[in-house]
Design a protein around this nucleic acid. Structure first.
Lengths: 333, 333
DNA sequence: CTGAAAGCGCTTACAG
DNA sequence: CTGAAAGCGCTTACAG
C-alpha cells in the first residue's frame, strides 16, 4: 500500500458507492446489515482511517473545541480540563489546548488560531474584561464561547465559575462553630481577585458571628520572603488558633512555621487551645491534600464539575443563564 | 457579510489571483510589496481567516501534534505539556490534548482519533510496553511518535525521560554529606516503577557510603491510612534524621506527623540532631514548594525541559538517540 | 512576479 | 437502500 486508502478505495473494495460508505461511517442513512459488514471488512483490510479534515471542510462541522488557559499547571485549570475532557470524550469531540498569558495580543493570537482550525466552540479560562473583545470576534464567526473562572463575572457572556466567597465563608463558619475566635487568612497574591473574594467571604463570616475582622491577620505572599511573615504572625499573635489558607503551598509554609514554634496541627477545635494546637482550613485539591486529610480540612472548588458544565453547555448551547456557579465542597471528614 | 470570506473573496477584493494570495499567506513565492499590502488590506476589510482544514487537506501537512497523557493534573505531565507548548507556539503548531487511561483499548482510540485528525506527530506520556503496539500503528501512517516518561525505557522508540534513580541518588548523597546517617524513603505507591527507580538510587547512595539499606525505612502510601505509618516510623525510629519524600503530598503528611511528635523541620544537617530536627528532600515542583524552600530541599525533574526536548525532536525528527535523559535539578539553595 | 486549473478526501442534496 | 456528481477552501505544479 503506497498511498493512504480513501473512502473511494473502501467503496471499490466493498463494491458499493462512496455515498454508501460515507453514510455507513456517519450512521446517517439506513444501510443494510450486509452492506455494513462488507464495508467494515474493506475498512479492516485496507486499514482505512477517515480523514476528518476533509469531512470538516465539506460538512462545516468540526467536533473540535478549543480550550485556552493561563497555565495548565494550575491545579484548578488542570481539573477543569479534566472535566471538559470527560464530557467531550463521550461525544467524540477532541480538544485543542492553548496556553495564553491572557494579554490582549496573546489571546487574540490563540483565538485566531482556533478560528483557523474551525473549532466549533471555545472555552476560555478567564473572567477578565478582555473576554468582551474576544466575544466580539467569536460572535462574528458564530463560534460559541464559554468562560470558566475562579472568580468574578463578566456581563453577557456565559460563565461557569466557582464560588470563592461562599467557600471561604463556609470554611470560616465551620472554624467558628468549632469554637475558634481568633482566625487569620494566609496566602495568595494581594492583587488576586480570587483572593479578594475569599477574604470578603472570610470577613463576612466573622462579622456575622460578631467577631472582628483584623487586617493584620490577613497576610499575602507576594514574595517568597513573606513565608517569614507567617512565622512572625504566629509569634506576634499566639492566640490565633485557626487559619484559612489560600492554597496548599501556603498551608505547607504555615505548618513549617508552626512546627518551628512548637505548635502542632489538628482538628481538635478551640478546646485544644492549651495544647497550642492550630486548626487549618485550606483551599486545595484532593490529590494535594489526601494524605493529610486527617489533620487538615480543605475546600474543593470542584474544578472538574466546572469543566463538565462548561463542556455540556457548549455542546448543547443549552443554558441561557449568564452564569453558573458551582458550589464549593468542604472536606472536613 | 453572510458567508465566511474565502481566499477567493480576498483575491477578488485585492484584484489578484488566488495563487498570489495563497503564496502571500504562506510566504512562499516572492510577492511584490504593493501586492502584499493590497492583500493585507483586503484581509482586514473582509475579516478573512484562513481555513487550515482546507490547507491541510490539500497540502498534506497539518501543523498539529497530538499529546496523550494519563492525567493532566499530574504536575509532571502538566509541566511536560507546558514545555511542549512553549516550543510549538514558536513554530505555529497547535496541540490536541487527549487523556487516556493507558489501557490498550483506550490508547488505541486516542491514537486513531489523532490519525483521523491527520496530526503530524504524537507525544505519548508513557513508558509502558504498550507503546510498541502504538508504534506499529503510527509507523504504518508514517506519523512520528515520541514517548515522554518519568521512568523506564522502551526499545526502539525515542523516549525523553527524567532520571529518577539519579535524582534520588544525588539527593541522598546530599543528605549524607550533611552528616545524616539514618535516612528513610517515604511515599509513592509500591507498584510504581518511578518509585522503584528512586528507591534503587536511594539504596545505591546509601551502600556507596557504607550505610545500610533497611527495608523498614522505606514506606509506601498505597492507602491514605498509611499516613499513620509515617508517624509510627518516626516514633519507632526516632534516630532517623532525614527523609527522602516521594512527592509534596507525602512531605506534607510527614511534616504533620513530625509536628505532632514535637519535631521540627530544617536544613541544619545532622548537627541539629539534639534539637530533634528533621531534614527533608522532596520530589516536587517549584510551584508546590517555593513558599517552603528555606526549610525543604527538592528535586525538580524538569518536566518542562522534557517537554521542550520531546517537541523539538518531534518537529525536527532530529535525534537518532533511542533515549534522551534529562538530569534532575537539586534545589537546596 | 502572477494566473488558470486540477485536485486533496470527504458529504450531501438529488435522483432513482 | 444505493449511485453519480458537485463542491467545501485551499495549495501547487505549470505556464507565462
Amino acid at each position: 500500500m503506497m498511498r493512504k486508502p480513501t473512502i473511494n478505495d473502501v467503496a471499490k473494495h466493498a463494491n458499493v458507492s462512496v455515498t454508501t460508505v460515507s453514510l455507513a461511517l456517519s450512521g446517517k442513512g439506513r444501510i443494510s446489515e450486509i452492506t455494513i459488514k462488507k464495508i467494515n471488512e474493506a475498512i479492516q483490510e485496507l486499514g482505512y482511517v477517515r480523514n476528518k479534515n476533509a469531512a470538516t471542510l465539506r460538512s462545516g462541522h468540526s467536533a473540535v473545541i478549543g480550550v485556552i488557559v493561563h497555565d495548565i499547571r494550575d491545579p484548578f485549570y488542570a481539573g477543569i480540563i479534566t472535566g471538559i475532557n470527560e464530557v467531550l470524550v463521550e461525544q467524540e469531540y477532541i480538544i485543542f489546548l492553548l496556553q495564553s498569558d491572557m494579554t490582549s495580543a496573546g489571546l487574540f493570537k490563540c483565538v485566531n488560531s482556533l478560528i483557523e482550525q474551525d473549532v466549533s466552540g471555545i472555552i476560555l479560562g478567564s473572567g477578565g474584561q478582555i473576554a468582551h473583545e474576544i466575544k466580539t470576534i467569536t460572535d462574528k464567526h458564530k463560534i460559541p464561547l464559554i468562560l470558566v473562572s475562579q472568580s468574578s463575572s463578566v456581563d453577557n457572556i456565559l460563565l461557569v465559575r466557582s464560588d470563592n466567597r461562599l467557600g471561604a465563608k463556609l470554611a470560616t463558619e465551620y472554624l467558628i462553630s468549632k469554637g475558634h475566635r481568633q482566625i487569620a487568612y494566609l496566602g495568595g497574591r494581594s492583587d488576586s481577585l480570587t483572593r479578594a473574594e475569599r477574604v470578603a467571604g472570610f470577613a463576612n463570616a466573622l462579622t456575622k458571628h460578631g467577631l472582628k475582622f483584623k487586617t493584620e491577620w490577613v497576610v499575602a505572599d507576594d514574595y517568597p520572603e513573606q513565608l517569614g511573615n507567617f512565622e512572625q504572625l504566629l509569634k506576634q499573635y499566639p492566640n490565633i488558633t485557626a487559619f484559612l489558607c489560600h492554597d496548599t503551598s501556603t498551608t505547607l509554609a504555615l505548618i513549617l512555621g508552626a512546627s518551628k514554634l512548637g505548635r502542632s496541627i489538628g482538628k481538635g477545635g478551640n478546646t485544644s487551645y492549651f495544647e497550642q494546637q492550630i486548626e487549618i482550613f485550606s483551599f486545595g485539591t484532593q490529590s494535594e491534600i489526601y494524605l493529610a486529610k486527617n489533620l487538615i480540612s480543605y475546600i474543593d472548588n470542584q474544578p472538574i464539575e466546572i469543566g463538565r458544565q462548561a463542556a455540556n453547555n457548549l455542546l448543547n448551547s443549552g443554558s441561557t443563564l449568564p452564569e453558573i456557579v458551582i458550589e464549593p465542597r468542604l472536606i472536613t471528614e
